[in-house]
Design a binder for these strands. Structure first.
Lengths: 343, 343
DNA sequence: TTCAGAGGCACAATCGTTTGCGCTACTGGC
DNA sequence: GCCAGTAGCGCAAACGATTGTGCCTCTGAA
């Protein structure tokens, strides 16, 4: 046990009668480059290891303008979809020796902007951002200035920032087709947050599928749009059921929305799929065990998270290549038993 | 737009022809204490605000030995139980102006120890730790040295560290009683991770409930114990079903374990509750919509998270009071329809 | 003996803040 | 006119690490 905890370069240097310079160089693997003798090198790294000394990241960051940390901004960490992404980001960052600073933006653009400012001021080396998705002005700076960033799940058509998402259009098209082919004609969309790219793409997929089958587009069947939350799914379903008795199928644009819809349907004592069919985005393990195992559009969120860190560190560390535009992963349509065959 | 981005005290000072000292004092609210004139104060804070200048947290942390950041160590952020806690910690920290550094320990004591070392080296001002729960040696230092910490969910009887958890014993007792009172005699425990405090308390609750009703304790009905994961619930249920045809009820010690059990039961084509009954710990929104809406022991994880941050910041900031021992929150027993009445 | 060349390391400035003192220039009382 | 008192602020030394440059001491060849 050391009398003085060996917690700075200085103390190590004192103990071994060498300079801080030398210690620093050895510990940062520059020994050879500066011709430190094997003997000194060994002594220093021995001592450092013995006390598992780590150079103060604050001092280091101050000098180097790098902090070995990345920011992660997420609208709602308790949404399993985002939690899954967060997990991969955390693991990927750790693997590369980086820490993660977590910010929950609560689906609020203001808080998101604040979070980004915070991360900037903390001098993170990069940011993985699952944007709320509405305003994009606070992101404009990223296109010019050098702070690496990767957008996940949602993107902005007017900003050439690298992002990773899924092919929402095809996913929604698959789901809608499936409903149509099972004889459904009055299919309602329970939207997520209007204006966000996944929502708009899914909507487009829905509309294109209808068009393909020469079915009329009934705008009053497209409801919701305020949030991806459970409450939104619940309340929109309640209203919908009051207004439209002819709806035979629901397409929920998110796992929490589907959950809310489920709650509403249960309250109204509607059975799935006998009384009404439903398909949801975001597969989750429990969906297979529901009263009516739910047909769903699976999003590979683990891959999304992994890809996001990869793309981020491609910018942060050499080689520094950056993806212009986005990477689209395919969705996977999983058929279970929440859709009734009408014809 | 400034020619030189006003990003340091120095630049602000230059622009206004005052010293960095003065600027620093004004921005840290010490103007009055050091008799800075209103005029100077105003000019400085004006300019700072205009460029929304924030003093470099690294330099600040270096000098002050405080970083306005806390660590959050979680076994698995994709487990909704922990995600819920994480959410509250993130919000609570933000509210107080602190950042959160997230570490996923993957239910590995080694990674947990590493994470703590990392957080220490990053000079966090406090740690919220959901410990893996097995070894506690790496936590011993916390009892002496000053880094504030709060344990969540799991605690150690040999360590006087503040923690917040739920009354697992009563929770498990309630559940077991319910099964017994519905005529079940062969009730199997699907354990979580052996040796962790929630697991042991739940087990004790189970055993005490049996004793209360003068039922024999059959050790071979207590299975699992390797993890709180889905896979564990699945495989243990598979084995159990092979070995014991007489089991009529399952008590799962976690939401993922219950999910695994559900998967196994589905594979074996066993219906709930007709063929077998099940109760789970950790209520989740979807449990109400399962084929058999699941009776469950609800843990108030939002409150747990909130309480954890509160207790942490009681140590971090004045008044600095610390809870010795733990805070136990009550569980809430929710009866749904996954238990069959046998008598 | 001399000197080139390299081996082995240290000096000191720098990153941006904070803070204990101390310094200057008024003001007013006597 | 002198001096104490105070208002208003700046000096310079930390905090701990990194790094361009320079300094000394050998070794060996000429």
């Amino acid at each position: 046990m050391p009398t003085t905890p060996l917690t700075t370069l200085k103390r190590i240097a004192e103990q071994l009668h060498v300079s801080e310079t030398t210690v620093s160089r050895i510990l940062s693997g520059q020994a050879a480059r500066y011709r430190i003798s094997k003997k000194t090198e060994h002594a220093v790294s021995q001592l450092a290891r013995a006390h598992n000394f780590v150079p103060n990241p604050l001092a280091r960051g101050l000098r180097l303008k790098k902090t070995l940390s990345v920011g992660l901004v997420i609208p709602d960490i308790s949404n399993p979809f985002f939690a899954g992404i967060a997990r991969e980001v955390a693991l990927g960052a750790r693997k590369r020796g980086y820490s993660v600073i977590l910010c929950d933006s609560q689906d609020d653009t203001g808080l998101e902007a604040q979070s980004i400012a915070l991360l900037r001021s903390r001098r993170v080396d990069g940011i993985v951002l699952c944007p709320v998705g509405l305003a994009s002005d606070h992101l404009r700076e990223f296109t010019e200035n050098g702070l690496p960033i990767v957008l996940v799940d949602r993107c902005f058509s007017d900003l050439p920032l690298p992002y990773v998402g899924v092919d929402n259009l095809t996913g929604a098209k698959d789901a809608t087709r499936h409903l149509i082919e099972n004889g459904h004609r009055h299919i309602s969309c329970l939207q997520g947050l209007r204006g966000t790219s996944p929502n708009e793409s899914r909507l487009r997929g829905y509309i294109e599928a209808l068009a393909e089958h020469h079915l009329p587009l009934d705008r009053s069947l497209i409801v919701g749009g305020d949030s991806y939350g459970e409450a939104s799914g619940y309340i929109e379903t309640k209203f919908l059921l009051q207004a439209r008795k002819d709806v035979t199928a629901l397409l929920a644009f998110g796992n929490l929305i589907a959950l809310g819809a489920l709650r509403a349907l249960a309250e109204e004592k509607l059975r799935i799929p006998e009384d009404i069919s439903i398909i949801s985005f975001d597969n989750q393990p429990y969906l297979a065990h529901l009263a009516a195992p739910m047909t769903t559009v699976d999003q590979p969120y683990a891959e999304m998270g992994q890809l996001a860190v990869t793309l981020l560190f491609d910018q942060v560390q050499p080689p520094g290549r950056a993806l212009k535009g986005g990477a689209l992963l395919p969705t996977n349509f999983i058929i279970r038993r929440s859709v009734r065959k009408l014809c």
